[in-house]
Amino acid sequence: MMVQPRNLKYRVWTARIFMILFLCLIMFPFLMIISVSFRSGNFATGDLIPSNPSLEHWYLAFGIPWENADGSMTQPPFPVLLWLWNSIKVAFISTVLILLLSTTGAYAFARLRFRFKESMLTAMMILQMFPAVLALVAIYSLFDQIGSYVPWLGLDSLGSVTVAYLGGLALHIWLIKGYFETIDLSLEEAAAIDGATSWQAFRYVLLPLSTPILAVVFILAFITSIAEYPVASVLLQSMDNLTLAVGSRQYLNPQNYLWGDFAAAAVLSGLPISIIFLLCQRWIVGGLTSGGVKG
């Protein structure tokens, strides 16, 4: 380590204080929402640490009716856990499909030779910039049509949302392809000489070596699916079919403002997703930077 300048101490302290202030600013919404979730009523004000905490909103978030002080019962306003379950189902299945398709696709783009490969890759790169948001009318009509032949893929079905998310795989193909290209080609050649078919070389050599990037893509695709709002909001209609992202919006209607209930539901549903993300953040950061830098 270099010999540091003499005023280093002041600089460190300035930086540290700035950092702590900034973190307070960043953390404010989270702390506030946790605090709000323990206040009774939907319009209660109070300190950051509630003076008389109540589990009212948490009961409702878990779908348990809450008995008020005057003996009346408050029914849970929305099926939060069902929405969370819907989100997880959709996200899990679509992610598995995305992973499957983008891995095989990336393998071909990284390793095999075929016509139009370069133009296909360029097309993928440009298409990934067009999010589904831009063509919602078309997506709506598409699933309307599909639904008249295959009802479980029609409008207002979780199947339709799951399938619609497959459009997002162009980006992941690029990510995985970039990683495959860092793996020495002679490993697969060695496998071929060891008697492996190209499928076996892919399955037993390339795939096991790519688990880090597959994990990254899995988590990224999963979180993207969970947090997706526009497509789901257009395709899903009935209360029981909503995903969390679409459903949560119902809490903050001006006509029916359920701030406290929302707080508990938000913490309940946001916590597991955030924890998964933070646990895997090292991988995700690696994947994002390598994918980003390599393009």
Partner: peptide, 20 residues
């Protein structure tokens, strides 16, 4: 014949050992 049927052995410059 594809390589997997030729029954030859090869030692690569980079060794190409399966790291996992």
């Amino acid at each position: 014949w594809p390589p997997n049927e030729r029954r030859v052995g090869m030692v690569f410059q980079s060794y190409a050992l399966y790291p996992h």
